[in-house]
Design a protein around this nucleic acid. Structure first.
Lengths: 339, 339
DNA sequence: CGGGTATTTGCATACCTATGCAAGCGACCG
DNA sequence: CGGTCGCTTGCATAGGTATGCAAATACCCG
């Protein structure tokens, strides 16, 4: 086990000062080409790399982004996280994971740990953090970007797809398909994504003079969604179409309809999901769904976070990215549908 | 934006020395109860938390574990990572994510970055790092645990399920089911998991006096697995059973058989997977598979890593955890099967 | 009540790097 | 040829914490 090699060691080896070594590895510092070459050669020989901790201590920037996440069973998130990590690495940042309890979110502890590690910024995903996070991070001056979740009035930047627009598109497609009893299974009822999808959906239904036939609560959870579907279909007047607030739940609903209730999708009931996770395209489901443009959402998230790092006083922005309806076969296709 | 509050500030506020403050927050240091109470009160009042970077700098332990990961589309990994993160947080460690290129692994860069951040240990998942990692980490004295992958002869600790045993169980189940043409679609052909599953599978077939009917390469990738299945079924004498090296690929194979080729599973072909990801239990697939006991694998990984952190010279261990065959309906169930 | 031990506290320093400041140097211009 | 400017380099220090050492205090037993 070799001892850690420091800038001092390199300086000695190259016969220069420690500051010179530091400057060679500090972007934008003033060094002559010869000095740079000489130092790099010694560094190479000794296997030197600047200590990110020490660097972070003195610059006040750790180049660590805290990723706060509750659950990863919805496959939308792993994909997003992978892309986020890539994008941030390209900018010289890395993600430090903080997992919260799945149900009761241990906000206090998470925030403490985020501060301990001197994270430069925070990204949250699959999670609703209460106002505590807002306060604590504002106090500590740590920029926050909410990924795929907004907290209205929180003053935090948020990146989502255009959920209201998505809900509207789902409704319009089902209406065009001639459905008469259109229902919705929402996600976690306090999540902005779920709320907005419902709002957009209901508004379009209302505009067509047709109300929401039924509403169930799936809590962004497979089992709850399945149960909600069962209850809904058990009613005297079951729906002939269900818009489900995300794909993860929509697949569960399809399973319940087909295997528990022996119904046909879309013969008996049309299903529309939200996210366009990879599985939605699998032939067993072939789920019509609203695509969340992950790449663009990730790019926007990183861009916004970097902007906040540069100018912490910058006002928060709410970025909504529109995604298309991906028409597959889980919902009846209206005659002559082209859009 | 409040300035960072340091141990100095707390010391002043409490009227004690900075060392006293430090000791209160250092486990195992000698402090009187009154001192502790007093300091904690001031710390609370000022909102002080020890700076993990500075602490890491001086103790030489960052309490950061590098997680090196290539891809997350196999849902086995997100689940495992979530559990890993939880378990490590309970021990006061956090995961810093390093994503590698999906194909060409940029070993050099990843190793450099791992060293930059002074990670205390490394966990790799869904990835084959060449000998470079071994060398570099041995040189830097950083313990490594390979999760769900072993590199024989690397001298690195590894935690996997008992892949050979799993392969054997798959073969025995298919043999008991009276299958005559038993094939295999392997994963990434250099991955130890894939190799071992194949070895166990073939050995059991051989022992029964029956050879491997066909072998395809799915590269742990959905599209490749689908292609391999098509080729295999296109042969003059197609298999009547396929053991696929993980669930992720097995589901793709089932889709190809049912939807592209119009075959019945298990009527025409029996399928067995490996992992027991959540989707395997979904009624659309109801996949017979070998369970990887994620919880126990994670626990073993964390335990082994902590042991290595305590005693870096400890010899590497190879931990294999046996998992059961989960019998569902994607493979013909032998008459009177009880095991 | 004294001497010795155990415990607690403060002082000073180390960890490793970045950076302000001043000095050195060459170059360029008038 | 002298003065000024720009660039490069080294010196010294800071950033926030942990810890060895010595001093101080408390405690115990004889």
């Amino acid at each position: 086990m070799a001892k850690k090699v420091t800038s001092q060691d390199v300086a000695r080896h190259a016969g220069v000062s420690q500051s010179a070594v530091s400057r060679v590895f500090t972007k934008g510092a003033s060094v002559s080409p010869e000095m740079a070459a000489r130092v790099r050669k010694s560094a190479e020989a000794l296997g030197y790399r600047p200590n990110a901790l020490a660097r972070g201590l003195i610059t006040g920037r750790s180049r660590i982004i805290g990723l706060v996440v509750a659950y990863l069973d919805n496959p939308f998130y792993p994909d997003a996280i992978e892309k986020l990590s890539h994008a941030l690495q390209a900018e010289g940042y890395h993600l430090l994971i903080f997992t919260t309890g799945k149900h009761g979110i241990d906000t206090e502890r998470v925030i403490s740990e985020l501060i301990d590690y001197q994270v430069d910024g925070i990204i949250t995903a699959s999670i609703n953090l209460s106002g505590e996070l807002t306060r604590a991070c504002a106090a500590a001056g740590i920029p926050v970007v909410l990924f795929n979740r907004g907290i209205p009035g929180s003053g935090l930047s948020a990146v989502t797809s255009d959920n209201q627009s998505g809900g509207r598109k789902a409704a319009e497609f089902l209406l065009a398909g001639g459905h008469a009893r259109i229902a919705h299974i929402q996600g976690f009822e306090k999540a902005s994504t779920s709320i907005d999808r419902l709002i957009g959906f209901e508004m379009a239904l209302d505009a067509a003079g047709q109300g929401l036939h039924a509403l169930g609560n799936g809590k962004y959870d497979r089992a709850s969604a399945a149960e909600a579907a069962r209850v809904m279909m058990d009613a005297p007047d079951p729906p002939d179409a269900i818009f489900v607030a995300n794909d993860h739940m929509a697949l569960a609903v399809m399973d319940v309809l087909r295997f528990d209730l022996g119904l046909s999708v879309p013969g008996d009931v049309s299903i529309i999901g939200y996210d366009d996770v990879p599985m939605a395209a699998w032939p067993s489901y072939d789920l019509t769904t609203l695509r969340q443009p992950t790449r663009r959402m990730v790019a926007a998230t990183v861009e916004e976070l970097l902007a906040l790092l540069d100018a912490p006083t910058r006002p928060a922005r709410r970025i909504e990215i529109d995604g298309p309806l991906v028409v597959r076969t889980s919902a009846r296709i209206p005659d002559g549908w082209t859009q």
